[in-house]
Amino acid sequence: MLALQTHADTLLGKVINVADGDTITVLGDTNPPAQRSRLAGIDAPEKKQAFGNVSKQSMVEQVAGQAVAVICN
Protein backbone atom coordinates (compact mmCIF):
# COMPACT_ATOMS: atom_id res chain seq x y z
CA MET A 1 0.00 0.00 0.00
CA LEU A 2 1.28 3.43 -0.96
CA ALA A 3 0.45 6.29 1.38
CA LEU A 4 0.53 9.74 -0.14
CA GLN A 5 1.19 12.67 2.09
CA THR A 6 0.27 16.12 0.92
CA HIS A 7 1.22 19.42 2.41
CA ALA A 8 -0.45 22.64 1.37
CA ASP A 9 0.63 26.07 2.56
CA THR A 10 -1.88 28.85 2.92
CA LEU A 11 -1.04 32.41 1.95
CA LEU A 12 -3.12 35.03 3.74
CA GLY A 13 -3.08 38.49 2.25
CA LYS A 14 -4.65 41.11 0.05
CA VAL A 15 -5.17 41.01 -3.72
CA ILE A 16 -3.06 43.84 -5.12
CA ASN A 17 -3.30 43.02 -8.83
CA VAL A 18 -5.47 41.08 -11.25
CA ALA A 19 -3.54 40.05 -14.36
CA ASP A 20 -6.44 38.33 -16.10
CA GLY A 21 -9.46 36.18 -15.35
CA ASP A 22 -7.47 33.47 -13.56
CA THR A 23 -4.27 35.11 -12.29
CA ILE A 24 -3.92 37.38 -9.25
CA THR A 25 -1.11 38.85 -7.18
CA VAL A 26 -1.42 38.61 -3.39
CA LEU A 27 0.61 40.60 -0.89
CA GLY A 28 1.02 38.34 2.13
CA ASP A 29 0.15 39.55 5.61
CA THR A 30 3.31 38.16 7.17
CA ASN A 31 5.73 37.19 4.41
CA PRO A 32 6.24 39.70 1.60
CA PRO A 33 7.08 39.86 -1.28
CA ALA A 34 3.89 39.54 -3.25
CA GLN A 35 3.05 36.17 -4.79
CA ARG A 36 1.53 35.73 -8.22
CA SER A 37 -1.04 32.93 -8.22
CA ARG A 38 -2.88 31.19 -11.03
CA LEU A 39 -6.20 29.90 -9.79
CA ALA A 40 -6.80 26.15 -10.21
CA GLY A 41 -9.94 24.94 -11.93
CA ILE A 42 -10.55 28.18 -13.83
CA ASP A 43 -10.03 28.30 -17.59
CA ALA A 44 -10.43 31.99 -18.34
CA PRO A 45 -9.52 33.62 -21.65
CA GLU A 46 -6.24 35.48 -21.76
CA LYS A 47 -6.30 39.27 -22.15
CA LYS A 48 -5.79 39.22 -25.93
CA GLN A 49 -8.41 36.51 -26.56
CA ALA A 50 -12.10 37.10 -27.13
CA PHE A 51 -13.79 38.17 -23.87
CA GLY A 52 -10.39 38.45 -22.14
CA ASN A 53 -11.10 41.97 -20.89
CA VAL A 54 -14.58 40.96 -19.69
CA SER A 55 -13.07 38.02 -17.81
CA LYS A 56 -10.44 40.24 -16.17
CA GLN A 57 -13.00 42.87 -15.20
CA SER A 58 -15.18 40.21 -13.60
CA MET A 59 -12.24 39.02 -11.49
CA VAL A 60 -11.39 42.62 -10.55
CA GLU A 61 -14.95 43.19 -9.34
CA GLN A 62 -14.83 40.04 -7.21
CA VAL A 63 -11.40 40.13 -5.57
CA ALA A 64 -9.42 43.36 -6.14
CA GLY A 65 -8.42 44.81 -2.78
CA GLN A 66 -10.01 41.92 -0.89
CA ALA A 67 -8.45 39.84 1.87
CA VAL A 68 -7.96 36.27 0.62
CA ALA A 69 -6.62 32.91 1.65
CA VAL A 70 -4.74 31.13 -1.16
CA ILE A 71 -4.06 27.43 -0.64
CA CYS A 72 -0.79 26.59 -2.39
CA ASN A 73 -0.02 23.01 -3.32
Rank of each mutant, 00 (worst) to 15 (best):
M1E: 10
M1Q: 10
A3L: 14
Q5E: 12
Q5A: 04
T6S: 12
T6V: 14
H7A: 12
A8F: 02
A8N: 09
D9M: 11
D9R: 10
T10Q: 08
T10M: 11
L11A: 13
L11H: 03
L12M: 09
L12Y: 13
G13A: 06
G13D: 04
G13I: 04
V15C: 06
I16F: 04
N17V: 05
V18H: 03
A19H: 13
G21M: 06
G21E: 03
G21N: 07
G21P: 03
D22G: 15
T23F: 04
T23Y: 03
T23E: 06
T23V: 11
T23A: 04
T23D: 05
I24R: 07
T25E: 14
T25Q: 10
T25L: 02
T25W: 06
V26N: 01
L27H: 07
D29M: 02
T30P: 00
N31T: 15
N31C: 01
P32H: 05
Q35H: 13
R36S: 06
R36L: 10
S37E: 08
S37D: 00
R38G: 03
R38D: 10
L39D: 05
A40F: 11
A40Q: 13
G41A: 07
I42M: 12
D43V: 11
A44S: 15
A44T: 09
P45E: 08
P45M: 05
P45A: 09
E46W: 07
K47G: 00
K47E: 01
K47L: 15
K47F: 01
Q49C: 02
Q49Y: 09
F51M: 11
F51A: 05
N53H: 14
V54F: 09
S55K: 02
S55W: 04
Q57I: 04
S58V: 06
S58K: 14
M59Y: 05
M59V: 11
V60L: 13
V60H: 04
E61C: 00
E61N: 15
Q62A: 15
Q62P: 00
Q62M: 12
Q62N: 02
V63W: 07
V63I: 15
A64W: 06
A64N: 12
G65A: 09
Q66A: 14
V68M: 09
V68F: 02
A69I: 07
A69S: 15
V70C: 14
I71C: 00
C72F: 15
C72P: 00
N73S: 13
N73W: 08
